[in-house]
Design a binder for these strands. Sequence first.
RNA 1: GGCAGGUUGCCCGAGUGGCCAAAGGGAUCUGACUGUAAAUCAGACGGCUUCGCCUUCAGAGGUUCGAAUCCUCUACCUGCCA
Length: 417
Amino acid sequence: MTHVIDDLDARGLIAHSTDLDALRDEMDAGPLTYYVGFDPTAPSLHVGNLLQILTARRLQLAGHRPLLLVGGSTGLIGDPKQSGERVMNSKETVAEWVDRIRGQVSRFVSFEGDNAAVLVNNLDWTQSLSTVDFLRDIGKHFPVNRMLARDVVASRLESGISYTEFSYVLLQAMDYLELHRRHGCALQTGGSDQWGNITAGVELVRRADGDRVHALATPLITKADGTKFGKTESGTIWLDPALMSPYAFYQSWIQAEDAKVGEYLKQFTFLPVDEVDRVMAEHAERPGARAAQRLLASELTTLVHGEDETRAAELASQALFGRGDLGELPASTLEAALREAGGVELDEAPTVVDALVAAGLADSKSAARRAVTEGGAYVNNERVEDPELSLAGHGVGDSGWVVLRKGKRSVSGVRLP
RNA sequence: GGCAGGUUGCCCGAGUGGCCAAAGGGAUCUGACUGUAAAUCAGACGGCUUCGCCUUCAGAGGUUCGAAUCCUCUACCUGCCA
């Protein structure tokens, strides 16, 4: 049986760590309580957060006990980021997001057994905390000169940083101390962008209670060109189906780059590392088959949206990207596929340009017209030349649905009256 | 408080009265090649009732036949001096 630390390492999930041998010894001595936190900065978690949840799940599967923290108070303050001061959200909004995120996070860990997960909210120990106590008990352990030296803070000194954001690290460090005292928490995990906050917590626990606790950080997930994965121009890859359909979610994985698909399989799925290696060996033989991408998309969509949604997304993808004749698809399959892909019903037969806009494939009529002019617009897989062509009578079979495609991989549709 | 400079399209950044919807780069999109991959090459890249028209160069007002470019005020930012 592979040690969970070796497994994490083999998957490329350890970017930074405190003393790994000491951590290993503690893990071997018995179940370890650890925590990972999520700040409610949006109504849903995204793939970056997913990596953290999955890492937490791996540790739980190895017998350790997860504390999942939702930042009801830290979400009100805002972690300082390079680009500048965050917009502060209202307390009502943050409270609503806390609820939604709590629900999302809960689906990935087990609440059964000896090492059942526990949900915690840092609002519980901050809302009644007095300012004076906070400054005496927590603030005293934070030398400002060292806080100023932190990378994010240093980079913000020119552009400006509010006292609110400057103080963020104290709250997160205090979370670790509280969880250490309340639950015996001895490990915090998170993304590498959180490393500074995490180690601040480790240090606070040492200073305040004299205990040595641990930290692990996962690397930033990137695309082949080095930019951040999951935040494309077209938007963030969300976990909430209301923000990103399961079909779109599936598609964003199936488009993974060859150079990265192996890493993603190791980092985002529970497939054993040697099985991933085997799949990648096959993929190297026949990359055109895209077997690795299909596996990745299928595994992830199942994890996040379940088997039924995965099946629907797969069928839709096969129907819309298959080589076959659209007319040979059962009408129900075509309809389901186009609805999955974001197709819309219209009151009257539109022109190609209007249909592209209505189906969400173009931002404006100019953009739609441009797509046609550039030879990038297709109706039922046939390239169209005339932007003003009416789609009346172009429905596939008797379905009334017209398949629209822009470029290579953006497919949608409209249903004629 | 005084002096000087700055604010340009998604981002960076040219442009000091007409040739400016505005150079160049990045991002993005499309085509060719392919495999819903990458790289490469080419094109596009404010909007619309698209061979023309409309709205943009921090905001408001003004000069002029004509302004992103000149003047006035306002807001914000940056240096230098107090």
